[in-house]
Computed example of a mutant assay.
Amino acid sequence: MENDHIPELKYLDFLKSEDAVTYFGQLDYLLKDGVHFQDYGNQIPYYRFLKKYKDSLNSYYERFFGISLKEENEQSDSYFFLDFNTSSRGNIPQAFRENLKNEYIIIGLIMYKILFLEGNVELVSIQKLKETIRNDYQEFKPGLRKLIAQSTVEKDNFDDDEAIDNSVNRALKQFRKLAWLDYKGDIFEPRASFHRIISIYEDVIPRIDKIIESYT
């Protein structure tokens, strides 16, 4: 009977590691801020820490915050994130809560449609991405304009194309913060975690055309 409590201490296992002192404080902050971690760039040591202690860390977040630490795979790449979508996030301090604006979600879904559903994986130029959204998706422009106007301070008297370009810039900045993609200069690169947008909004993708058109 005296050992009955041992399984409950699983959530403390990761704290026994010296690496916890180095990585966990920053890692915890960023995970709660919605950042996704993968085996890439300066995230590599954090990813390896998550990989090694994922069971213990998951037990910790479930016990104290009522949320799960998830690992998802895209082909040979995996990534970690806190799954707020299966929780009320009620135990996460308000300072850490930041939901994607509707305009970012729609831009992200259009990007997914262009890059993956339509097979334009060679598209790596931000400027070319903007031109593609503006020129090849004319039917979306009225809906995008209205959506952007609802989501930003740019309410009236702005050029449609400039507003869409600015919205793409804002969306890319937010996606980089979440570690869904990276960019430098004009070149962007989606990370494996960009596919997370589909697991969140998988019911939306088949209806994206009608959803955007509904804003007109």
Rank of each mutant, 00 (worst) to 15 (best):
S87Y: 12
D83I: 02
I106F: 06
N135G: 12
G119Y: 05
P93L: 12
A95E: 13
N85P: 01
S88D: 14
E131C: 01
I114S: 03
N102P: 04
D83Y: 03
K128D: 15
D136V: 03
R145Q: 04
K155M: 14
P142V: 04
E122W: 09
Q94P: 00
L115W: 07
P142D: 04
N120R: 15
L129F: 10
K155G: 12
E103S: 12
E154W: 11
L115K: 09
P142R: 14
F96T: 02
D156Y: 10
D136K: 15
I107N: 02
Y112G: 09
E118I: 03
G90D: 13
K146N: 13
Y104Q: 08
I107C: 01
V121W: 05
N120C: 06
I107W: 00
N135I: 05
G108S: 11
F158S: 00
M111E: 10
K146I: 06
M111W: 01
K130Q: 15
Q150D: 12
S151I: 01
L82N: 00
P142E: 01
G119T: 07
V121H: 03
I107K: 00
F140M: 00
D83T: 02
Y79W: 03
G108Y: 08
A95W: 03
F96M: 08
N102K: 14
F80C: 10
R97C: 02
K101N: 05
M111V: 04
L123H: 03
V121I: 12
I133R: 05
D83V: 01
A149V: 02
L144P: 06
G90T: 08
F116N: 04
F84R: 00
G143C: 09
L82K: 01
G119M: 07
F96G: 01
K101Y: 09
L100F: 08
Y137F: 14
I148K: 05
E131Y: 07
E122A: 07
E103I: 10
P142Q: 11
D136H: 15
L144S: 04
I106M: 15
R145C: 07
K101W: 04
R97H: 09
Q138R: 08
R97G: 00
F84P: 01
L109T: 09
I92F: 10
P93K: 14
S78A: 14
L115N: 09
